[in-house]
Design a binder for these strands. Structure first.
Lengths: 221, 221
DNA sequence: ATGAAGTTGCAATGCACGTTGTACTCTACC
DNA sequence: GGTAGAGTACAACGTGCATTGCAACTTCAT
């Protein structure tokens, strides 16, 4: 599925380095300036324009590669945070809050990535469907699956009551992440720390009300 | 705040008509083709390119006007649906479900508008902050305030238990709307009816679990 | 009717940019 | 150390497009 955008094997040393530099430059420039000119990317990457076209078919393919690489990186960060906060849970609410804060912090840590996502979304009508799917699979869906896995384990320990772990993961994501995303315009406008805390606190509370087992036994409409 | 984009009073008859035609054409073309050429808009509106520049300073101002007008229209539709479904509530869950379905249907009814929103979001970094604010105030914030009002009334009748009506409105919006928005890429990719129903049903259920008064008395958490 | 205001079609300007070709240089490998 | 495979600088091409000027034409208020 990512076949078209995978880095082809290549004998020459340093080749992959150039490719990496270009992709990184593309991510930076696309993130900062929008769907900007190739020249800016070449400058940012310390590479000639011609080299970019030696590595990539055209601007669009470069963009696809950039967003895919970026998505993997962000996903890894999110997954790592889940492990850190949910592997050993003592106080569930506190740990969920900590995870939520860590996620939101990631948004500030990878501003370029989220700018790319915004660009892609804006062009969703005209963007190649395979690239859209590839991104969703590599990024959001994978992250959500990881969260679902963790929530499922917590449910197994009796700390949560969950019908469908994947749906629970989506709801958690929506309540703590989607609102921050929306309010900050996908990270474009920074949000007050107090506002973030308020959103997260309320979101986690609503989530838990919907997914905490009743104090006594184990049934609930 | 919208002063810059309001239609200036004008003696001449037919003037406002042209302006309207241009704005409508802009919305259609921007929505369909992205941040497209002025010529396309002129053709769509049945107007000469030059006339557009007689009415608007530049493309950007035209875009701002288009999205503001569009936002008001969509907001009115959403508000009207709230009245229809929440003014006389018999079965709360059923009515909320109906409202949610109506909202999602609106997304399909105003595809151009949501494409405009996507465009604006993609450019959020570089878009004039006042225009961004004007849109948020006219559209999403107003709609959410209306929903908060309705939910507050329902809480007054004892059908819901709500701390902050505005927060409850946000959570409802997130659980039933944000996910559809995200999954369909802001309406760019149509969603299966079954998927929509599943999302809405689960969202309303989680919402109600968090905001329904306990069967017995009136305290909770 | 008449003149001012608005509209139109057209051309022109000017710029930004994707993409490619070419000739030269560099460098990793043998 | 030589050579083939990369990279680079540079220029050129073509295009698309926002924006403006202009002269002729239409429309509306009085």
């Amino acid at each position: 599925m990512t076949s078209q955008n995978d880095a082809p094997a290549h004998p020459r040393r340093g080749w992959a380095d150039k490719r990496q530099a270009i992709i990184r430059g593309a991510r930076t420039v696309f993130g900062r300036d929008g769907y900007a000119g190739i020249d800016a990317i070449a400058t940012e990457a310390g590479v000639s324009t011609r080299t970019i076209y030696n590595h990539f078919q055209d601007k669009e393919q470069l963009f696809s590669c950039a967003i895919q690489e970026s998505a993997v990186q962000v996903r890894d960060a999110l997954v790592e945070q889940m492990s850190r906060h949910l592997d050993t849970v003592t106080d569930l609410e506190a740990d969920l809050l900590a995870l939520a804060h860590a996620w939101v912090a990631s948004m500030a840590q990878f501003p370029d990535h989220f700018a790319l996502v915004r660009l892609m979304t804006a062009e969703a009508n005209r963007f190649p469907a395979e690239a859209l799917d590839a991104w969703q699979e590599l990024g959001p869906r994978a992250a959500r699956a990881a969260l679902a896995h963790h929530l499922g384990l917590l449910a197994g320990r009796g700390l949560l009551e969950i019908g469908d772990p994947d749906r629970a993961a989506r709801h958690f994501h929506l309540l703590v992440f989607a609102e921050v995303t929306e309010r900050s315009h996908h990270g474009a406008v920074p949000l007050d720390e107090a506002v973030i805390t308020e959103i997260i606190t309320a979101g986690v509370r609503t989530f838990l009300r919907g997914h905490i087992p009743p104090p006594g036994a184990g049934r609930q409409q």
